[in-house]
């Protein structure tokens, strides 16, 4: 069967850096979640020194900033320390993982704290460093149990159902798994971070396929997130390579995205208010050629502003638009895939 490459086209960029809990902008965004009304929820991980601004910001594709919620840093209700990923269930409840507090916090779509669950440990029903999260149509919650090197499955209320995986690099084994996603058939994809690959499983956790490993120019390095479109094409946040790799449904390499950010509405507003910076920016080459000793993905991304830098998450909204969240550029690059 010949599968056409995904028709991916860049649409726009949303974002601007904002360390504060004070309106539009993001601080080291780590993941997005999308409700049926088209609202974009952005998880701001922040960093330890500036963790008081840990929050979820809400905006839409037109770049209206609709609000934000957060409860501060710590272990209390609604609080987080190292949040990683988010997902909505069928009732528009938002689940957020926290790899430091070893738990999942649940909020309603207005940000009201509802509950938290998860207990640190290595026993069958415990988690250690929960990272990626995905929720199926029946509201089963799948969590990448990072330091136990497995996938855990819970009910929407946090009751443990089962899980699979063990430390290692064989089929069905993991090394610090991160992102989790599922396709329309219920198959589960895991960004097997330190094994440099994505693994695909049946809904019951049986190993189906692995791809992206093996090095080479198309190979994955430390993939952090995975998403699957309606056609079954697989999008991987190739975090260690600062890019997004797209694979056909059978796991063949299809296409690379390196990033092509443009100025968001918020960025344009900033530069309009700071014409001195706009003027010197206008005479700058923001796609410079770097000297050889800086020719690594990380250095290139740190100096070439349109490129992805810290592309930590790939997610689809309900209109099959791809959202790439860039931690280090505090923005989202958005692509159409239909």
């Amino acid at each position: 069967m010949v599968v056409a490459s995904a028709p991916v086209e860049y649409l726009k960029t949303i974002g601007i850096v904002n360390n504060g809990f004070n309106g539009r902008g993001f601080a080291n965004p780590y993941d997005t979640a999308h409700d049926r009304a088209g609202r974009i929820y952005v998880l701001n991980r922040c960093d330890v020194a500036r963790r008081t601004a840990i929050r979820v910001g809400i905006c839409n594709l037109d770049e209206d900033y609709l609000g934000e919620f957060g409860y501060g840093a710590g272990g209390g209700d609604g609080q987080m320390v190292l949040p990683v990923a988010m997902a909505f269930d069928s009732r528009d409840r938002l689940y957020v993982t926290d790899e430091y507090n070893h738990r999942v916090s649940v909020f309603d779509s207005d940000g009201k704290f509802l509950e938290k669950w998860g207990v640190r440990g290595s026993g069958p029903d415990r988690i250690n460093g929960p990272a990626g999260i995905a929720i199926d149509d029946a509201d089963n919650v799948y969590v990448a149990d990072q330091h136990n090197h497995r996938i855990q499955k819970f009910t929407a209320d946090g009751e443990w159902i089962g899980g699979w995986g063990a430390p290692g690099s064989g089929e069905g084994e993991f090394n610090m798994p991160w992102g989790v996603a599922m396709d329309g058939a219920g198959s589960i994809y895991v960004a097997d971070w330190r094994n440099d690959r994505v693994q695909k499983f049946s809904p019951d956790g049986s190993f189906l396929a692995s791809f992206g490993s093996g090095g080479g120019p198309e190979g994955l390095i430390r993939p952090s997130s995975v998403a699957v479109d309606d056609r079954g094409s697989v999008y991987v946040a190739d975090w260690g390579n600062e890019r997004v790799q797209i694979f056909t449904p059978d796991g063949s390499f299809s296409k690379t995205l390196r990033g092509q950010a443009t100025l968001s509405k918020w960025a344009k507003d900033f530069l309009a208010a700071n014409p001195d910076e706009q003027a010197t920016r206008d005479i700058s080459d923001l796609r410079p050629k770097l000297p050889p000793h800086l020719n690594t993905p990380d250095h290139l991304s740190s100096q070439i502003e349109p490129y992805f830098w810290g592309p930590v998450s790939v997610r689809f909204d309900h209109s099959q638009r791809l959202f790439v969240t860039e931690t280090n550029r505090h923005r989202l690059q958005i692509y159409s895939t239909t």
């Binding site: 010197t280 005479i283 080459d285 000297p291 100096q303 502003e305 280090n328 550029r329 505090h330």
Partner: peptide, 26 residues
């Protein structure tokens, strides 16, 4: 340094906007 005018201006203002810092090279 590359883009010296823009980079030195951002350094002077400690500007991190719009998308964080842009690193420098000779």
């Amino acid at each position: 340094l590359k883009n010296a005018e823009y980079m030195s201006q951002r350094a002077m203002k400690d500007s991190i906007w719009p998308y964080g810092r842009i690193s420098w090279h000779f």
